[in-house]
Write a protein that binds this DNA or RNA. Sequence first.
DNA 1: GACTTTTAAATGTCTGACAAATGATTTTTC
DNA 2: GAAAAATCATTTGTCAGACATTTAAAAGTC
Lengths: 243, 243
Amino acid sequence: MKIDPNSPADLSAQIASAIRDGIVAGLLIVDERLPSEAELAEQFQVSRPTVREALKRLAAQSLIRTQRGATGGAFVNRLSFEDAYSQQVTTSTLLLSMNAVSFDTACEARYALERACAPLSAARRSADQLATMRAEIFRQGQPGLTDEAFCASDVAFHRALVDGAHNPVLSYQLAGAVEAMQPLMNMITFTARDRQSILALHSQIADAIESCDGAAAVAGLSALEEETRKLAADVFARRAAKR
Amino acid sequence: MKIDPNSPADLSAQIASAIRDGIVAGLLIVDERLPSEAELAEQFQVSRPTVREALKRLAAQSLIRTQRGATGGAFVNRLSFEDAYSQQVTTSTLLLSMNAVSFDTACEARYALERACAPLSAARRSADQLATMRAEIFRQGQPGLTDEAFCASDVAFHRALVDGAHNPVLSYQLAGAVEAMQPLMNMITFTARDRQSILALHSQIADAIESCDGAAAVAGLSALEEETRKLAADVFARRAAKR
DNA sequence: GACTTTTAAATGTCTGACAAATGATTTTTC
DNA sequence: GAAAAATCATTTGTCAGACATTTAAAAGTC
């Protein structure tokens, strides 16, 4: 692992890159301890602060973890699904908010992906996920629920649906698509009637999942997508008219 | 934005968190310049190296970019789809390799997601994507192609299929699922006959996309999934038998 | 007015130091 | 001899101050 001191790139970026490559390529295996900061500084011929900046970059991506003390140091981290989830959610959320992605585009992506999960979820969902879905449906029917809480419950409902597929890779990929929509959904104000129709569709989907009917679940999701888009279109049209 | 000096967490992690929250919450907008490192150090009551470590953490996530010189500094970065892609690919790849995800699980997720794209792609694909798909099919038929090159071409084919949906959010989400499979696929050795059958299915899918037949494309992908899983199962069975 | 030089501000890097945590080692105590 | 306590060494976390480098704007020059 070498770096080029004459490159225009930051030394810390180059060092981080070199170590990252080592991890991705499998040269550094999980839980392996990296050399100490002093040794890395020696090895790369840079100062310790520079090495530290590189290590912080890797820590930000959950690629390493550090531990203080006698047997401490930086260790290659086993990237957990949980860590990956939260990174995905942050990245997806910012991606949508910073790139003027239209509501329709995000919505289409989200429901297309969710429909991909539905048949698997119908086949495999456990009682746990079904209970969560029913609980969230109940919550959504409570009067006096704020729009934010309604949206949060909506996300929880859909996550349960996705988790029902019992495929962690799928759950991970979907986490971003579902959660990143939340800020967009929060822009919508739901009337009591809107909530009623969403609730009905949620129930329909939950019923389909319960009776292991994948096709019905897919149909329910499609109906929900249409409803959501119609709702959003109304809100945006009303806002445009006000001006 | 405040930090707690008595928290067990690193100061640089806390500072990074505080700034990240500011960005996600929209308090800091795209291209806005953060205070200089010296000012941040003053503001958070820490030293400049600590501030720098925090900034490097954010830079690792492409949340900020830094510029040297008189009007330089750290600026909130517009997270591009490109940046997000590569992060997703790295994360997904490591996630699969570090968590002993079975071939079947990853494969199932990948094809489920791809099938979600197929109808959209059939409806919207441009000549560009079709040409790429045909070109990759041609490449895959060339004799003397290494297994690695065959897999890389396979990825390119599927990316074109996904991009055909013309939904950047979908493309972004799928990038991880498709590319992260590559290392797993590379473990398989493809006989000439294997390649032939995959090629035939690719052609079938391309035909379906060309004739805007989403259902046929979905069917083709399902057949391809089955073929891929059978191939992998054979390889693994043969390896197990050898021991 | 166009070009060159200077300057100031900012990040990038280095040196050296101390604080704090933590496991290992040694010493003490019973 | 065993357990508890004290000490030690190693490593990361943090700080202070300094210099190098880059860059754009300001000042100077023709």
